[in-house]
Write a protein that binds this DNA or RNA. Structure first.
Lengths: 189, 189
DNA sequence: CGCCGAGTTGAACTGAATCAAGAAACGTGG
DNA sequence: CCACGTTTCTTGATTCAGTTCAACTCGGCG
């Protein structure tokens, strides 16, 4: 599924808007471990994942990488603390698999939103979805034991559980890799 | 500061939009402990806080209330998992102080966004701000000790620290009231 | 005056972190 | 296509931050 089909599945785009987007969007094939974005920089692009897996992470004061989120096929990816406000981000965005992406720059998106106000609905929907996911994750981790956190993964994100490393998943859940390994093996009742 | 002044301070509204909003918006004076919204219901209103303090909370499976967030003056308040998607919410919204609010219904807002597309920028900004706050809180709690969480409050939300109860703040930070009390008294180095 | 909710303090307990090895899987070059 | 080195995961022993439970203090309010 490509971006335009995907967007069109929930917001009907005018022919002109489709044309504009098709003209601007770039298809990018990038290998595993590519950084789509670096912390402390202003994020200049949004991506849409046709195929692949990405993670957002930041570095805490000890220099440790903390995985904040994952996204897979049919997701929009950008530094949400940076792209819209045009301010430096706290996050890195990294490919965890060889991926096929579509991308557009911030200024192209800005122009799109101005010229085709209908497309503001798309942004709106994406933002609302992001918020919902974040609220969901919060509730799944807040005051929860390691075992409950793991169950959240198995129930809500089984696909990511398969495709991401134990190390990244543990970080995402706020537990150590050792603990996650033990839970997985049922070493902890 | 009233809502229209506030909105106008970051998005210039047309005279017509202002007129529409003024006509629809209601000023509500409500006492402490009022529930603005209940879980399992579709949230029908957005509020703007002229004066007061609110908290969002949900009940976990043990029936315990978990405080998810606070908001004070000049904030927009609604169930963000419900208002835009028109689906039942997981959250309750409660006044922690006697408050003065402005409110508009979902259908009024919907009509506003249709008739005055410029106002979509307002929604957009609010959503982006919400996301930023959530990301910020996440980073402040994820893999952090109780003491570090408390420091986040003192640094980023000193006002809430003053006005909300120890009990609610502890819940918000994901620690027990006892631990928070000890930290506050420096009982824990 | 006495009650009640909010906060404090203490002591025992525990889930998960930490530290330290080892095993398995992975991919890279010979 | 195998061997070797690196990364990822597992397993065990120990430690500790924070929870739990229980009792007590304090301030406000009917």
């Amino acid at each position: 599924m490509n971006v335009i089909e995907y967007i069109n599945s929930f917001v009907l785009l005018s022919v002109e808007a489709k044309k504009y987007i098709s003209g601007k969007i770039r298809r990018e094939i990038l290998p595993k471990n590519t950084l789509l974005h670096r912390a402390d920089e202003v994020c200049e692009k949004v991506y849409f994942i046709e195929k692949g897996l990405v993670r957002w992470f930041y570095c805490n004061e000890d220099g440790k990488e903390i995985t904040d989120s994952f996204a897979l096929e049919n997701s929009f990816v950008t530094a949400f603390d940076s792209f819209f406000q045009r301010q430096p981000s706290r996050y890195f965005i990294e490919l965890l698999e060889d991926s096929i992406l579509y991308s557009m720059t911030a200024s192209e998106v800005e122009k799109e939103l101005e010229e085709f106000p209908e497309t503001q609905k798309v942004t709106h929907l994406i933002l609302v979805q992001i918020i919902e996911q974040m609220l969901d994750k919060n509730a799944a981790l807040h005051f929860r034991t390691a075992k409950e956190r793991y169950r959240y993964m198995t129930e809500k994100h089984p696909e990511i559980l398969q495709r991401a490393s134990l190390f990244h998943i543990a970080s995402y859940l706020g537990i150590t890799p050792e603990t996650l390994s033990r839970i997985r093996k049922n070493a902890i009742s």
